[in-house]
């Protein structure tokens, strides 16, 4: 309870603020409607009305929750194309989109993390890579992802690569960077004395990497993985924007075409839940791994 209470207080504050903002932002539309109809309305009519608009500027939290419920549980259990009636996830619901996005995110994250570790080891062990790689890695991150993602997807599509992989590549593009930065720092974290110690054993470079540098880098590694997996999710969603088919990004764009603000918000909430879940999963592994290494994470 001691740990839950502060979280609940913060959530409560956010909800209260959200409701207030919903009223403020949706009032104008109600006034315009009333003006057109030639009736005068007071706050007693306006405030409840702002809570149940069909296309509000800012949907109220309960509208978003209801939409979320409708597009997940209700759609899958009662919908004609839902899980219960058709045996597969409904393409009208959010779960299939969430799944598509998560699988691209995971694939991209694995690629990005692997590439990041590879670059970091290269930077630490190879003088030429040390001098040359980092500026390019930084430059790669200064290019707006929204600008480069459609181009990468178009190019890959033209050579016949479609589906999960192009999205995963965008995700990897964003997630390798924090891993490189964290791992370079981590692999270099052993002090001179610990490196000298290995020299006195006449240890090989590979032994130094496996027995000293990798274990020493673990706390840095997990910190960078947490940043990396969140970046990976953002990358996937951005990559999905220009694509048809399934995915939260596609869904967001469709929502904005048709002014479905409630649907956009519901999708955003799903994305946020996914991000929290992914970062939480990395944290779970982190606690286990560092715990087994005798460290208190």
């Amino acid at each position: 309870m001691k740990r839950v209470a502060p979280v609940l207080v913060v959530v409560g504050c956010i909800l209260a603020l959200w409701y207030v903002m919903a009223v403020v932002m949706n009032t104008q539309w109600e006034r315009d409607q009333a003006g057109r109809a030639g009736v005068s309305v007071g706050w007693a009519q306006i405030v409840p009305a702002t809570m149940r608009q069909e296309r509000p500027v800012l949907p109220a939290p309960h509208q978003v929750v209801a939409e979320l419920w409708q597009l997940t549980w209700v759609e899958e259990t009662e919908g004609r194309r839902g899980l219960v009636n058709s045996g597969s996830l409904s393409n009208r619901g959010l779960l299939i989109h969430a799944w598509v996005t998560v699988s691209a995110t995971m694939l991209g994250f694995a690629m990005g993390a692997g590439f990041g570790i590879f670059l970091a080891v290269g930077i630490v062990y190879n003088r030429a890579m040390d001098a040359s790689v980092m500026p390019w890695a930084i430059a790669s991150q200064t290019i707006p992802i929204v600008a480069i993602a459609p181009m990468i997807i178009v190019v890959l599509n033209s050579v016949g690569v479609a589906g999960l992989l192009p999205k995963a590549i965008i995700a990897a593009y964003l997630s390798f960077f924090p891993v490189v930065v964290g791992m370079v720092k981590g692999l270099r974290s052993p002090d001179a004395m610990q490196l000298d110690l290995l020299r006195t054993y006449n240890a090989s470079a590979g032994q130094g990497l496996w027995k000293l540098r990798f274990p020493a880098s673990m706390p840095y590694f997990f910190a960078s993985l947490k940043v990396g997996i969140a970046a990976s999710l953002v990358g996937t969603i951005v990559a999905e924007l220009p694509l048809g088919g399934a995915g939260l990004g596609t869904r967001l764009l469709a929502g904005s075409y048709y002014g479905q603000t409630i649907q956009i918000w519901a999708t955003l909430i799903v994305a946020a839940i996914l991000a929290a879940g992914l970062v939480g999963a990395v944290g779970f592994v982190q606690v286990r791994v560092l715990g087994r290494m005798g460290m208190r994470a």
């Binding site: 004395m193 610990q194 000298d196 110690l197 006195t200 006449n202 020493a216 673990m218 460290m295």
Partner: peptide, 16 residues
């Protein structure tokens, strides 16, 4: 590997 070296600090690996 003719010698063993003991440094000023113990320098034990915390994960071992």
């Amino acid at each position: 590997r003719a010698y063993g070296y003991v440094f000023q600090a113990a320098g034990l690996y915390p994960w071992r």
